[in-house]
Computed example of a mutant assay.
Amino acid sequence: MHSAKQVGRGVLNFLLPPRCPSCGTRIADDGHLCGTCWGEMAMITAPKCGICGLPFAAGDLDGAECGACMRERPEFDWARAAVVYDDRAKSLILGLKYGGVGSGVPALGRMMAGSIAREPRPDIIVPVPLHSRRLLMRRFNQSQLLAKTLADIMSLPLDAFALERRKATPSQGTLNRKGRKRNVAGAFRVSEMGKKAIEGKTVLLVDDVLTTGATASACAKALKKAGASRVGLVVFARVKHPSAG
């Protein structure tokens, strides 16, 4: 049976050779990046903000709070990202969100799991939800795909429906920090079944990109209001210089 699966995979790879989800170069197997793209990923390492994970300049104190977190603490307890949101990371995210290129999800998930290896182990994983209207248009939620991969890697339960997006908010893309916060205020709630799943639990919230943290804070606020004890956040990429204002 095992050899039959290997033969089947070999035939499929011959007919539809796996390609790097970032640059399209042929690779040995799906679920990976090519060596060049892997080497160009701007991994986030210490030093970084102890709250939101914003990367600091070399020589800064690891674990200190960045200016934004000192001015206004986010609702989540901590956030970590695997890489900086640069052109290489952007191509992966946009390919996933709008091009349906899901072959990179396992690689993204592994990098995300590595970014939280030293954080307290959560009890349950919850993805940032899409509004039903946008989900119908896109046909899938990229945050849910990443959350499922993380749940498999970390052997943790996943509740993809605990958190609901009750308002179809406009895109956050052109808004500054204050505008983003206003845009998502009250946009999320926890379902009745979700309340039972997260009550007293440490929740790991999963999203693809972190910019100002407005969406994640709104989600964390809803989760804590519904009974979660702590909320950590993990994303694949974070914007290094989020817009102010």
Rank of each mutant, 00 (worst) to 15 (best):
A57F: 07
H241A: 11
S243R: 11
F140A: 15
G114K: 11
R9A: 07
G53H: 02
L158C: 08
K167G: 06
F188W: 08
K48A: 10
P55H: 01
M154Q: 10
S155M: 14
R165I: 06
R73T: 13
L54D: 02
A46E: 15
I125W: 04
D87S: 11
R121D: 07
L233Q: 00
N141E: 13
P157L: 09
L130G: 04
G100K: 04
G53Y: 00
K48G: 01
R180F: 06
K5T: 10
A79L: 09
A79C: 14
A147S: 06
H32Y: 08
A185G: 06
R182P: 01
M70L: 13
G99R: 05
E199Q: 12
G8S: 12
R189N: 02
R134M: 07
L33P: 05
M41K: 03
P170Q: 10
A187G: 06
V11S: 10
A4R: 15
R9L: 10
L135D: 05
S155T: 10
L210V: 04
A79H: 06
R71P: 07
R88C: 05
P157C: 07
Q142M: 03
S115R: 04
I27Y: 01
V101C: 09
F161Q: 14
G200A: 06
R9Q: 12
D152L: 13
V11Y: 05
G109Q: 00
K48F: 07
V83Q: 02
G104I: 06
M154Y: 12
G245C: 11
A82S: 11
R71I: 08
V126W: 00
A82F: 08
L15W: 05
G50M: 05
V234F: 00
R73N: 08
C37N: 05
G109Y: 03
V235I: 12
P242R: 07
A113P: 00
G35A: 13
P18N: 03
K196H: 11
K178M: 09
A57G: 13
T36A: 14
K225R: 15
T174Q: 11
G35Y: 07
R230F: 01
K195W: 03
E40A: 14
C66H: 05
G232Q: 00
K221I: 06
R118H: 14
A147N: 02
F161I: 09
S191C: 05
K240N: 15
A42N: 13
L156M: 13
F188P: 00
L145G: 04
E199W: 08
R139S: 10
R88S: 02
M70Y: 13
R166I: 14
G10E: 13
G35D: 10
G200R: 00
R9P: 04
L16T: 10
G104Q: 02
